[in-house]
Amino acid sequence: MLSLTGIAATLGLALTGKLELYIHPRYVPFTVGMAVLAAAASVAAFILVPPEAAEGAADGHSHTDGGGHGHTHGRPGAGTGSPGRLRAAGSLLAVLAAVVGLLVLPPAALSSEAARQRDLNLSGTLGPAMTSRLVEEDPSSFGVREWASLLRRSPGDDYFTGKTATVTGFVTAAKDDPQNVFYVTRFVVTCCTVDAQPVGVPVYRPGWQEQHAVDSWVTATGEFTSNPDGDSKVELLLSPSAVTATTEPDRPYVH
């Protein structure tokens, strides 16, 4: 049951193109392939193998120890005695939880709650070598991650003068100056959502709370200027000419 739930969820997500909410695109073919194989095997086993044989070695002989305690597997309804019933109830609960979690709830990306918990721009940014290669590239195609990397490993303030950045991401409040500054944030995913690391570009916009809620998606355009708050660790900020609300993109993560 649980494997069927998992398989159904994987294939369902694949069909609706949401699998990338959970894993890196490069694993999608492998995951879908294994799900199809496993689906074939499970269905064949379910239809062809009679229950006695299926429960065979794992279940049948534990009767020899007088009562069948210590079954390991969670097959629902394996026994009808009271330990069996308890077990069946537990399995049912597990299946229910899995069905609700995997099939009923809408697939979702991580929220700003998770971003708040993980250090911003500590680890999701590009390495020094990649960043210095960025300097030679055309900045018009840069997104949150590229700008965040450039800001972190600054190639010199001169680099930023006269350059316009357009970044799209969700809003998180800056920890040291939540009144005036917010971050346009994206998650970087290297394998699956578990390792998602937030990266963000700081935006200077006093009173931003009145226009944009935390966790909502925005596109900000503008140039980089030095931080009016000289004591802050953040030296350069995006001073936007425009911040417009937008919807969450199909690929909310940066890969």
Binding site: S3, G6, I7, A9, T10, L13, L19, L21, Y22, I23, Y27, F30, T31, G33, M34, A35, L37, A38, G101, L102, V104, L105, P106, P107, A108, A109, L110, S111, E113, A114, C191, C192, T193, V194
Partner: peptide
Amino acid sequence: PGAFAGLEGAARDFFTLSISVVIESLPFVF
């Protein structure tokens, strides 16, 4: 789509993270 969208913040992240671990591991287990 709005019917089940009531989950916010940490609760939603819990499901997202757990599902991510399941989906990532499932093919390897199979």
